[in-house]
Each structure stands twice: as C-alpha cells, then as structure tokens.
Design a protein around this nucleic acid. Structure first.
Lengths: 216, 216
DNA sequence: ATATGTGAATTGATTCACAGCG
DNA sequence: CGCTGTGAATCAATTCACATAT
C-alpha cells in the first residue's frame, strides 16, 4: 500500500502517535481528526490524508478509537519490533545518548558502543561495552545491529559511515553536522542542531514569515 | 527579494555554506554548481535555483568565487551579526550544549543559563550564570536575548515556552520531543532525535525506498 | 447529525532546457 | 565554448468539497 508517501507525512505520523500516547495516558478513549490536528499544529484535512495513505482507521460520524489508532501507527512506523542500536563515538554526545532514559520505550535496544580511542575500548560506559571501530565486523557477527547513532566529530563522520556501511549496518542516525554519503541500500536520517540553529537565524533575520509553527 | 522561498531551500543553503567553508579551508578559490551539487548530494539545477531565489552570485562560463559566495550565503542566512543565546534547562543536555565548542564560530554567543532548580540558580555551569525561569524578565532587561535553546523535559516544554514568549524571546530552538505552540511572532525550529529515530525505523521497516540520501 | 475517507483542484517545489553572458 | 541564471513544464504535496458510512 505504501506508494508515493510524502516523507513529511511520516514525520507527522510520529507526532500523531505522540499525541495519541498522551491522550491514552490521560484516559481519553476516542478522538477526532480535528482534535489530533489541533494538538499537532496541522489541519484536519492533513491528518485524514496522512492516515489515508495507509488505510482507514476511523468510524464515520464518531472519529477514532485512541488505542486502535495508536496501535496502527506503531505498526505502520515499524515500532512493534525490536531495533538493535549501537553508538559510534563515545564522546560527550555518545555518552549522553547512552544515558538517555526512554529509548527502550519503543524497543530501541542499545547493544554496544564503538570508538577509536584504545583507552575506551573494552571498558563499559553506562552499561555499554565499547568496541573498536576496526572490530565492527566481529561485533556484527555476534549481534544483529539495525541502527547506528553516528556521534563522532565532523571530520571522522564519512570514514565511520564507510566502516558502518562496509560492516552491513542498514540504518544510520547521523548527529554530525555534515552530509554523509551512503549507497542506496543504507538509510540515513540526520539530526543536525547547528543546521537548525542556522535556519532559525535565517527566519529571525528575514521578515516575510507568517508561521510560528514547527519543522523537524 | 525573498518571496515564497521553499524552506527546504534554506536548509540546503546551510549545507552549501558548509561545503564552501571546507573548500576555503582547502585553499580552493573557485567552484561550480556541479561541484557544490556533488558535495551536497543534490542536483546542479537545485543549487542554481536555490541561489537564484536570492540573487545571482556567479559568473557565467567560470562558476563561483568561493570567498564571495560564502560571504553572500552568510549574509543571506543572517550569520553576520551576533545572536545572543540562552540555554533553558541546565540538565544533561543543557550542560552538553553549554560545553559545545564551535558555537561562536558564527557569532552565536551563550549569555546565560536558565533552570527551575534553586540549587543551580546563581551558580555557574561552564561559564554560564544560571537564572531562575521566573527571573526571565529581569534577564531580558539586562541583556538582549535572540534565541533560547529549549532543553527541558517534555512535560515542562510548553510552560517554559510560554515563559519565553511572555518574556519576549523571538526565537526558540526546541530540543524537546514535542510540538510547542507559539504565537506567530515567535519562530521555533525543532531538533528532535527521537522523531528522527522513528522516521528511520519507518524507512528501514518499509521497502519502497530508493534514496540513500539525507534529511534534516 | 456528524466526522471520516477520497477524488478533484490548487498550490508549491523540483526538474528541465535553453537563453544570456562572460 | 562553458557555466550560470531563469521561464516553462513536470512532478509532488496540500487543500478543499462532498459523497459516504454509522
């Protein structure tokens, strides 16, 4: 069924899922596209269209059952299986990520750290055993790895990416403020706060904005 | 001149600026849309169109002068003036941001920390003096503040945002994994690694991807 | 009566082809 | 002759209006 889905729609599904989680925690049983739209800062049309890309999950006249829609969104987003994650680069950022509390909320499981610093290799940081970047193949032989958090300095990002690709890691969440190149079989998402900061500078610097809304 | 500029174009300008900075560091004096495109993982059409939104900066037949184009992009993005930044939420993330090395590279100047923990208020973290959230007005009276890094827990994000809006902070870089609402006069950019992670899960989970490229 | 689901219309962004200039 | 700059064309995404189901 997924055919030509705007990737912006996927970003919004993530938001809807959060809203639903909050609603469920508040004991709300049913909701509507209007309500979801208000919480997510988008239009109700948008909510219904985004959901329609994947199926139909509501009942006309009465809206959506929170628990049902939440379950469906988790399924659509792939959040019903376990994802094994390694952290590449155990500096300040890598360590902060290792200590991040709610990662396992949706079965993201940290399975190892990776660094090039021999002083760190073999130690435990948090409860992650640290491997050397050169031992990635060995690590991947022992352990399925779905996702790598790339938390190395800019200058090391492409080389580390190449090593990850070579070892067969299919997904990379890139925290380095640079574009990394990968072959088509590998998927990269970037989390780039310096880019966000500079976009913000642009919007503040330049009049002509009417929004007040959010981007990811 | 800025009229109906795709916000994706702004994101790409940030990338082009990085590429130019690298080129300059390598002593390269001239470049072309083809070359920039290759480095930024986009098409040469895209590079030229993005630049054309703001003016014309090259010379036909020979391309762009690195130093000139870099200067123009800095000007367009608003990176030629100083931006005063406060960090709201001096927990693990706030402290990591306070210690981030290259922030002043483009005149982003950290001027204060903010927290609600009385044990932190009045102390220095890094070299940031920490204010109480309730004293924002006082802080803003002493000091121009252009941008707040919102690094508080999810549950506190909207309340802290309201306080920032009320105190008159025009720009917010939101690190909390939630949508915050602001009036139209305030600009928010979000840096949401959990959302990025879930998008990544979706793309890995769902076939139908041909890309290998990046998003911000 | 009410709120979803969806084809059609509109708006927006990207791609293209080539005119324009050095 | 080469590479930029840009109107025109294509492609994608959002908005809308309303038919549809409960």
């Amino acid at each position: 069924m997924p055919k030509g889905i705007p990737s912006a729609a996927v970003s919004r599904l993530v938001i809807y899922l959060r809203v639903l989680t909050d609603l469920e925690a508040d004991g709300v049983g049913r909701t509507s596209s209007d309500h979801l739209a208000a919480e997510a800062n988008v239009s109700a049309f948008q909510v219904r269209k985004d959901l329609a890309y994947f199926g139909s999950f509501g009942t006309r006249g009465s809206g959506y059952v929170v628990a049902t829609l939440k379950r469906e969104l988790r399924r659509i987003l792939g959040l019903t299986r376990q994802w094994n994650v390694i952290i590449v680069g155990m500096g300040r950022l890598g360590q902060a990520l290792a200590a991040y509390p709610q990662l396992d909320q949706y079965d993201f499981e940290l399975v190892a750290g990776v660094d090039v610093d021999r002083a760190k290799v073999g130690t435990r940081i948090g409860d992650l055993l640290v491997y050397h970047l050169d031992d990635l193949h060995q690590l991947l032989a022992e352990q399925r790895v779905d996702i790598a958090f790339l938390a190395v300095p800019v200058g090391a990002a492409q080389a580390a990416t190449d090593a990850l690709v070579d070892a067969g890691v299919p997904g990379i969440l890139n925290f380095a403020p640079t574009v990394v190149s990968v072959p088509p079989a590998v998927t990269v998402e970037s989390v780039d706060f310096l880019a966000g900061l500079k976009r913000l500078a642009y919007f503040l610097h330049t009049p002509a904005h009417d929004d007040g809304a959010v981007t990811s």
